[in-house]
Design a binder for these strands. Sequence first.
DNA 1: AATACGCGCAACCGCCCGACT
DNA 2: GAGTCGGGCGGTTGCGCGTAT
Length: 312
Amino acid sequence: MGRAPCCDKTSVKRGPWSPEEDSKLKDYISKHGTGGNWISLPHKAGLKRCGKSCRLRWLNYLRPNIKHGDFSDEEDRIICSLYVNIGSRWSIIAAQLPGRTDNDIKNYWNTKLKKKLMALQFPTSSHQRKPQFPPFPSTHPFSNYFTTTHTPFSDFQTISLPSNNNYPNTSFNPFYQNQESMISLNPSMQYNNNMFMFGSEGSCSSSDGSCKEIKQEEIGYHHMNSGGFDDYNNNNFMINCNNGSVGENINQYEEKTSGVGYGYNNGQSQTLTPLLDYGLEDIKQLISSDNKDFSVDEIHNSEENGMYYFHY
DNA sequence: AATACGCGCAACCGCCCGACT
DNA sequence: GAGTCGGGCGGTTGCGCGTAT
């Protein structure tokens, strides 16, 4: 036999909470805690509510230190940068924003932030761009290495990330030690003339060396998801793999907690697509196997920072 | 002043996974 | 091992309010 049903849905109250109900719930939890059982809590607290409803009310509204009201620019940046890398994993995003709830962030994203970013990305100017799925045209050299369901980078504009000093106590920290990490998604960046680039180990900057555990193809995957832009008007693409890639640390988190490496595709964990190996020669070989029409930009290539640049 | 419309947000719904029996 | 449920989560709904017509 299993457990008893959580509640009789026909006899519980639904809809907005009254101040009296809020007060009862708050008083009960402050005295007794949740007891680890939300289902029995409403009866004990004298509430005619479903346990799940109580839990939601407490977590999203009544519990201490909940922040309501406007989001700061920094919070905006954190939400955007995490959304780029993990998708709509609101609970994980909320864990990085003390006082904010997943529901709050979700609402904020859906009602304001998404529109704000779209307005930035698709201004009514000569740079006007149209959304396109998949993010790469099929003729792109990397088209085979991308899934078609990933949210295209074009939803976002240039985003700067805060240093990890702001989040010293979180269970995982998406921000590496560098102070100037950027996710660069701006279509007006410097290499926009039939050029793309990507990097190898250059972005691994964790001080404890733990990111060495991450498989190289995952690093490649996350570089693809950590920055870059695609110019739909001119069929250009560029990937920027600066230090401080958010995705890598999220991968670290997954590996540490579950022992398995995951990538995220639109919020769904998935098997990562092998993308690259170490070294320029490997990359050249990889690209040439799919697309003959490319050339290496020897002027801009930098073994030092792990960036490689190509025209196609 | 009345009505229509759009937006923000609290709350609900339904699913998944792990725990329990 | 199978069936069932609780907790947690993301997606969606619908109410209330402000603004436009």
